[in-house]
Simulated assay, not measured.
Amino acid sequence: MSDKELRTKSDKQSIDQFIHQVRKLPKTSGEQGRLIFALDATASRGATWDQACHLQSELFLATKDLGGLAIQLCYYRGFGEFKATGFVSKAGQLLNLMNGVSCLGGRTQISKVLTHARSETRAKAVKAVVFIGDCCEESVDELCHIAGELGMLKTPVFMFHEGADAHAKAVFQQVSKLSGGAYAPFDRNSPQALKDLMAAVAVYASGGAKALQNYSSGSSPEVKRLSQQIR
């Protein structure tokens, strides 16, 4: 059997195991958890945006037995453009929103993502923020200050880092730690890792830390490392 066939078989087993694990989790009160799904939509992000579009349904699949999930899409691109949609509760709705966005060159605007998340969770609790990006061109002190406020509000930020930019790694790690979230690197050439990470945060947003711990026990090394960071 070829390496590709072995990987395909392994991926299918992981997905089957995950679905079985989630179905065994205790039911919640039925109230949907709210999650902000934020992406860098600057020019360098085109390929990963397309990948995220293909994988976004995992966020809903992972939580269908835990009361579900309401997701808001946020993104920045171009010259100071920042957008936040309404909250949606179906994969098709989120996919339509994402398909309506094209990536444009520009500087990072992570501070706008965090500031928006702070405003949203003050109005009504946001269980988690997922951010996917590859670099940071902003004041570290400002980002860390807002991240600390999110930590006080119990809205953890999960920073998924594409690539190997050392400065971005250091900043993303600080933001995730101060907010009570977690940092995880990934390679866009390995979509399974991103898929697992997205599903794990969805489980956390819908079912809490215990649900994430239960899920991670039978999941990938990336998810185990993620869950170990949650305080």
Rank of each mutant, 00 (worst) to 15 (best):
Ala91Asn: 06
Leu150Asn: 12
Gln21His: 01
Ile146Val: 13
Asp65Lys: 12
Phe131Ile: 08
Leu194Arg: 14
Cys103Pro: 06
Phe79Ala: 14
Lys127Gly: 00
Met159Phe: 08
Glu138His: 11
Lys64Pro: 00
Cys135Met: 09
Gly100Ile: 02
Gly68Tyr: 05
Val88Ile: 12
His54Pro: 00
Phe79Tyr: 13
Glu222Asp: 13
Lys210Trp: 14
Cys103Trp: 12
Leu73Thr: 01
Tyr75Cys: 02
Ile19Ala: 01
Arg107Lys: 15
Phe37Leu: 04
Phe160Val: 01
Pro221Ile: 07
Gln13Ser: 06
Asp165Cys: 08
Val223Tyr: 04
Ile15Leu: 14
Gly92Thr: 08
Tyr204His: 09
Phe60Asn: 01
Thr85Tyr: 00
Asn96Glu: 15
Asp165Leu: 02
Val130Ala: 03
Val203Ala: 11
Asn99Tyr: 10
Gly208Lys: 14
Gly133Leu: 04
Leu95Cys: 05
Leu61Glu: 12
Tyr75His: 13
Gly68Pro: 04
Asp187Val: 02
Thr155Val: 02
Ser190Glu: 13
Ala91Gly: 09
Ala70Leu: 05
Ala170Glu: 12
Gly78Pro: 06
Gln51Tyr: 00
Gly78Asn: 10
Met198Pro: 00
Leu153Thr: 12
Glu81Gln: 15
Pro191Met: 09
Ala209Leu: 14
Trp49Gln: 07
Ser44Arg: 07
Thr42Arg: 05
Phe87Glu: 07
Leu35Cys: 11
Ala47Trp: 04
Thr108Tyr: 07
Val171Arg: 02
Leu104Gln: 15
Gln109Arg: 13
Ser217Ile: 02
Lys210Asn: 15
Phe37Ser: 03
Met98Arg: 07
Gly207Tyr: 05
Ala211Phe: 15
Arg77Asp: 01
Leu35Asp: 03
Ser89Val: 12
Phe158Asp: 07
Ala147Gln: 02
Ala70Cys: 00
